[in-house]
C-alpha cells in the first residue's frame, strides 16, 4: 500500500483514484458545512472520514452521493464529473450508501428491500411488468439469485420474509448494507455503519465491511466515531474539523498528528493561528 501523498485529480496515479473530490465546499445560509475539502480515494481502499460532531463528514458524503450539490469544487468518480449529477444518476454509476439514521423501506420485507438495490440493474418497464409472465419474471428470478447470495453473505436467511420495520436495530443496519451491496457498487459510502451497536455487533459489521472489500474489491468510504474500529479496518484516514480537512494519512500517522489531537481534545488557544471558516 503506497498512500498518495497529494490529493486531487492532478495526482500522478490518476488511474488508481476512483473518487477525487477537489476543493469541495457547501454552505447552508451563513454556515459553511464543508470548506474546500479535497480527498482522493484509491480504488480498492478503505478510507475512514473522522472528526468531531458537526465537522461536515455527513455533508461531504451527501455531496458524493448527489444528495447535496456542492457550492464550489469538483467531484470526479471513475473519470466522470459527477458534481452536478442527481442521486439516481450517481447510483447508476455505481455509488451506493447507507444512512446514519437507517433509511429502510419499512413496509417491505428484507427480501424486497434488497431487491430494490437491484433496481438500477433491472430493466422491466411498465409494459413488461404488466404482462409479467415472460421477460419480467425471468429478470426477477435472475436478480433474486444475486439477492440470495447477499442474504447468505449477511446471514439474513431466516429473516427474508420479515418486514424490516419489525427487525432489531443491528439487523436493520445489516439489511441496509445488503441493499447498498445489491447495487454491486464500485464505491460504498457507509455513514456510521456501527453507530448505536454493541461490541459484538460492531465486530460483525467490521467483518462484513472487510469481507466486502476483499471479496468484491469494493472501495469503501466510511464515517465512524469508534476510533478502535477505524484504526483496525481502514487503510487511510481523513480528518475533518469544522468543515475543513485538517489531516490525512495512515491510521497510525493520524493517531500521533498534533492537529488531530487538538481537534478532538481541544487546547486552550482554540483555533489560534488557523483560519477557521466558521464557528462550530
Amino acid at each position: 500500500m503506497a498512500p498518495a501523498e497529494r490529493t486531487g485529480t492532478e495526482d500522478a496515479s490518476e488511474d488508481d483514484i476512483l473518487l477525487a473530490a477537489t476543493a469541495v465546499s457547501k454552505r447552508f445560509g451563513g454556515v459553511t458545512a464543508v470548506e474546500e475539502v479535497s480527498i482522493a480515494v484509491k480504488r480498492g481502499s478503505v478510507t475512514a472520514i473522522i472528526g468531531p460532531n458537526g465537522a461536515g463528514k455527513t455533508s461531504f458524503v451527501n455531496m458524493v452521493s448527489g444528495f447535496y450539490r456542492p457550492d464550489s469544487g469538483v467531484i470526479r468518480f471513475a473519470g466522470t464529473d459527477t458534481t452536478r449529477f442527481r442521486p439516481a444518476e450517481i447510483a447508476a454509476l455505481g455509488i451506493a450508501r447507507t444512512f446514519q439514521n437507517i433509511a429502510l423501506f419499512g413496509g417491505m420485507t428484507v427480501l424486497d428491500n434488497i431487491m430494490l438495490g437491484r433496481h438500477v440493474h433491472m430493466k422491466s418497464g411498465i409494459l413488461s411488468s404488466f404482462v409479467y409472465w415472460g421477460l419480467a419474471q425471468k429478470e426477477e428470478v435472475a436478480h433474486r439469485a444475486r439477492v440470495e447470495e447477499l442474504i447468505d453473505f449477511l446471514e439474513l436467511q431466516d429473516l427474508r420474509k420479515q418486514p424490516t420495520s419489525a427487525l432489531a436495530y443491528g439487523l436493520r443496519k445489516r439489511v441496509e448494507l445488503g441493499r447498498a451491496l445489491a447495487l454491486d457498487p464500485k464505491l460504498l459510502l457507509l455513514d456510521e455503519p456501527m453507530g448505536g451497536m454493541n461490541q459484538e455487533e460492531k465486530e460483525d459489521m467490521a467483518g462484513y465491511i472487510l469481507d466486502v472489500n476483499e471479496q468484491w474489491g469494493t472501495t469503501i468510504i466510511l464515517i465512524e466515531h469508534d476510533m478502535a474500529v477505524v484504526m483496525d479496518i481502514s487503510d487511510r484516514v481523513a480528518v475533518l474539523d469544522r468543515g475543513r480537512k485538517i489531516a490525512e494519512g495512515t491510521p497510525s500517522e493520524m493517531q500521533s498528528n498534533p492537529d488531530v489531537i487538538r481537534a478532538y481534545l481541544g487546547t486552550g488557544e482554540r483555533g489560534a493561528g488557523e483560519k477557521r471558516g466558521h464557528a462550530a
Binding site: A91, A96, Y132
Partner: peptide, 29 residues
C-alpha cells in the same frame, strides 16, 4: 398484482416509505 410484485411496484413502495433512500438507490423519483 403484476405491477406491484415487479420492479415498478417496488419503486412505488420505496417512494412511499423513504423517498430520499429511494433516490439514493437509483430510483428516478
Amino acid at each position: 398484482l403484476n405491477w406491484m410484485r415487479s420492479r415498478i411496484g417496488r419503486a412505488f413502495i420505496a417512494i412511499r416509505d423513504q423517498d430520499i433512500a429511494a433516490e439514493i438507490i437509483g430510483i428516478n423519483i
